[in-house]
Structures are given as C-alpha cells and as structure tokens.
Design a protein around this nucleic acid. Structure first.
Lengths: 193, 193
DNA sequence: ATTTGCATCTTGACACTGTAAAGATTATGC
DNA sequence: GCATAATCTTTACAGTGTCAAGATGCAAAT
C-alpha cells in the first residue's frame, strides 16, 4: 500500500537523528522512541537494525569518532607541509585540532567521553592494534618525536609521556567546552617533557 | 499503629543504601524505587527528603567526596611529619592517596567522575572559594611548593601546572581502576615541572 | 491534656521508557 | 512466481521518575 513502508536507509538515518537530538537536547533527552519518531517510523523499528539502545549509542559514537579522527589527521598533515619542524609541530597541531573540534561541538565531548571510557584505551602494552584511533595517531607521532630528538625511553616512560600529553590536552578541552568556562590558557605552554 | 511509620533517619539511610547499590550493581542499576525498597519504605518516601533523583545522587556524591577528601588530607598530614622534605613530598603523597582511594573503591571513580564534571572545578581565576575540595587542597600545597622552590609563576602558568599534575594523576587512577587495566606505571616519574 | 500544625510516609495514578512477541508489508533469490 | 528473509507496525508488559491526595505520628501551643 504505502510506498514508504521501507525507509530505504533507516540505519544511517537513526544514527544521524540520534546525533542531532544529542546536539539539540543533550544525551539525557535521547530515547529510542524519540529517535524513531524523528525518522517517522514506529517505536520498535530500530530493533531491526540495533539489538539494543546501547548498540545505537555505540554506532553514533563511532560516527562522531570518525569525524574527530579525520580532523586530527588533517591537522597532522597540515603541519607536515608548513615548516620542516617535524613531529613536535605535529603534536602541537593535534592538540590545537583536538580543542578546536570540541569547541565547535561541545556536546560531542560529553557524548564521547562522558562515561570515561577513553582512558581504557590509554595503554601501550602488547602493541594493541585496536587502539582508540585518535590515540593511536598520537602514539605514532610521539614515537616519531622520540626518534627525532634522539631520546630512548623505556616502554613505561613512553606510556607516562603519552598520558601526560593526552590527559593534559583532554583536560583543557574539557575546561574550554564545559560549564561555560572560558579559559585563556595558552596550552602550548605544556612542554612535551 | 505501626511503630515504624517514621523511619527515624531516612535521609541518611537513603544515601547509604544508594552508595551500597552503586557499589554492588553499578550506577545504571540505581533507581529511586530500589533505594526506597532497600530502606523498606514506599517508593515515594524519598520525596520527603529529596526534590529529585538528582538531588539524592548529589547527596551521595557529596558523601563519597568527603571520604575522598579525608584520605587526601590524611596523606598530606602524614607526609608532613615524616621527613622535612616539604611540599613536594606532600604532592607525591596526595597522588599516592588519590590512586589508592579509587583502587580500593573502583566504583566510586565512575560515580564521581563519570559525567566529567570534575574539570569544571579546575580553574584558578578569582580565587574561587567553592572549589572542588580535593583540588583546593592540591592548590594550597602547590602554592607552598612554588614558594619553597623560589619560582614565580604567572596565574596562567600556575593553572597549567596544576592541570598537569591533576589530570595526569587522574588519568592514571582511571587507568588503574577501569576496564581491568593493571598498570605497572611508576607514576612518580611525572615531574612537577 | 487536647488540639493544631507540620514533617513524614503510603497509596494510587500518569506519562514515559526499553524491550519482546506476533503479525503485516516489501524486497530478494531461485 | 514463489518462498524466504528483511524490514516495519501493533500490541503488550514491566520499570522508571514524579505528582497529588490522604494517612500517620510527633511537637509545640493552647
């Protein structure tokens, strides 16, 4: 009868509608039923594509993380051409892009990091292949930096160094994004060692 | 009729039952009705003491934060008597206590910091009196340290220094507590400057 | 001592949530 | 063209937070 019984691309539409809702009303206000309604579909339709509410949330996070990673990669590439300053400049560029991304989409910050899952990715043991992509990128650039500066750090020391950089930048992005805090921090004051 | 119509100290009982539930089943599983049931009280009884579910949650967090702060203060005092090493030792002792506290109560970590509200307290402008108490403590000790070492930092630089210390230790506590990550990091490798 | 007022607690109701089961509708492979 | 699978709707159920109206007990005022 109706020629719109099948949505066509409901899965993607649900992900996008979910992200939109989070940006407009916050994560608290997100319900499966609202997402379904936003796609003009019955409240149980999402279950054809996602086992859970959590599975939809995960897909949404995946999508936002892709955007995030793309910005970081782009920053690294941009710092490559400019001067021949090397890895240190790349790290600084990443930091700038990191903060910039969440300044432009403050709700993404709490969405991605709200449950503090990020730190679970902050480990270097056994060369995880399934690292959190943005962190993996930093890891690569950081190793480059170590090689350039001729420093030889133990794995444990590398871990500490990475955590220092990451958590500092992360903390400042949080500062800048949340609770309406305007910070005048010149974050590049943070030295790499 | 019944001699237990009035509970006696329901408010405190609700807070404690709530914390117990979070420790046993996680924050997701906490509902007002469960907390009420745990106190053998009807499902709407909490509304005599808390306007909201959120207000109960806030009271619970307050309670846990008090325990947390007490441990930190205790560590600072302990480091005072030992050697005459001064503020640097105090900072290190605080870091140790920080990690120790959450290692012993892993669920408190996500409970307190789950929503990332902590960073909202990480600002030094205009000498906030209503600082997050543990952070306020670090602030005090840090200033002591600066005075001792004869360094003169601008407010912005102080802010950066504090964030470096706090977020690094925080990140490592997260590493140690969550996702079953056992870390062998010797966190004292983190230098204060 | 009785009454009055107030804090506390119960009962019942409402809208909303996630999720499951059963059936309708459309697309797809043979 | 038909069977099968994928997609979507309808209906239902147990939980949830919250509110309103009433029951209960305590404490102060008369």
């Amino acid at each position: 009868m109706s020629d719109t019984y099948h949505h066509g691309n409901l899965r993607q539409a649900l992900i996008e509608a979910g992200i939109r809702i989070i940006n407009e009303q916050g994560e608290e206000a997100l319900s499966l039923r609202k997402v379904a309604a936003a796609c003009e579909v019955s409240h149980a339709a999402p279950y054809a594509h996602f086992k859970d509410k959590e599975e939809l949330l995960a897909a949404m996070k995946s999508s936002v993380t892709e955007q995030f990673t793309a910005k970081l990669e782009q920053a690294v590439e941009g710092a490559d051409g400019a001067s021949a300053a090397g890895a240190e400049q790349k790290i600084l560029a990443m930091g700038r892009a990191y903060i910039s991304f969440f300044s432009h989409n403050p709700d993404y910050f709490t969405f991605l990091f709200g449950k503090q899952k990020l730190v679970a990715h902050l480990r270097m043991d056994e060369d995880h292949e399934e690292d959190y992509p943005p962190f993996k990128l930093l890891k690569t650039v950081f190793r480059q930096y170590l090689k350039e500066s001729g420093r030889a750090l133990s794995p444990a020391e590398q871990e500490v160094g990475l955590i220092k950089i990451w958590s500092s930048v992360h903390g400042m992005a949080a500062l800048a994004c949340m609770a309406g805090v305007e910070t005048t921090i010149d974050w590049e004051q943070i030295k790499l060692q």
